[in-house]
C-alpha cells in the first residue's frame, strides 16, 4: 500500500527534450529499501512524474532529489543544446 502519492507535470519546449530528461533521470532506480516507487512518462512534450511512498518523509526526500536532477538536466540542455 502506498498512501502518499505525488504527481507532477512539467512542460518542456519539445517532446525530444522531455524524453532526454526522462531517460537521464529515470535510468537510476530508487533505492529498493526506501520503498519508493517512481514512474516517469512523456506525453506530448510534457513530462509526468509520479512518486509514491508509504511514508511522507521518504516521499519528500525522493521528490526533492528528482526535482534537483531534472533541474540539472534542464540546465545542461540550456547550455549545450545545439538544435534549438
Amino acid at each position: 500500500m502506498t498512501p502518499y502519492c505525488c504527481n507532477i507535470s512539467i512542460p518542456f519546449p519539445s517532446e525530444r527534450l522531455a524524453t532526454i530528461a526522462m531517460r537521464s533521470v529515470s535510468a537510476d532506480k530508487e533505492p529498493r529499501k526506501s520503498g519508493v516507487t517512481r514512474d516517469m512518462k512523456v506525453c506530448g512534450g510534457v513530462l509526468h512524474v509520479s512518486v509514491s511512498s508509504s511514508e511522507l518523509r521518504v516521499l519528500r526526500v525522493s521528490l526533492g532529489s528528482v526535482l534537483e536532477l531534472l533541474k540539472l538536466s534542464c540546465d545542461t540542455m540550456d547550455m549545450f543544446d545545439e538544435k534549438s
Binding site: 532526454i20 537521464s24 535510468a27 537510476d28 538536466s73 545542461t76 540542455m77 549545450f80 545545439e82
Partner: peptide, 18 residues
Amino acid sequence: GAPLVSTAVVARTLAQLW
C-alpha cells in the same frame, strides 16, 4: 551515491543532446 548520480545525469543528457 548522490555525487555519482548528479554527474551521471549530466553525462546522459549530454550524450543524448549530442
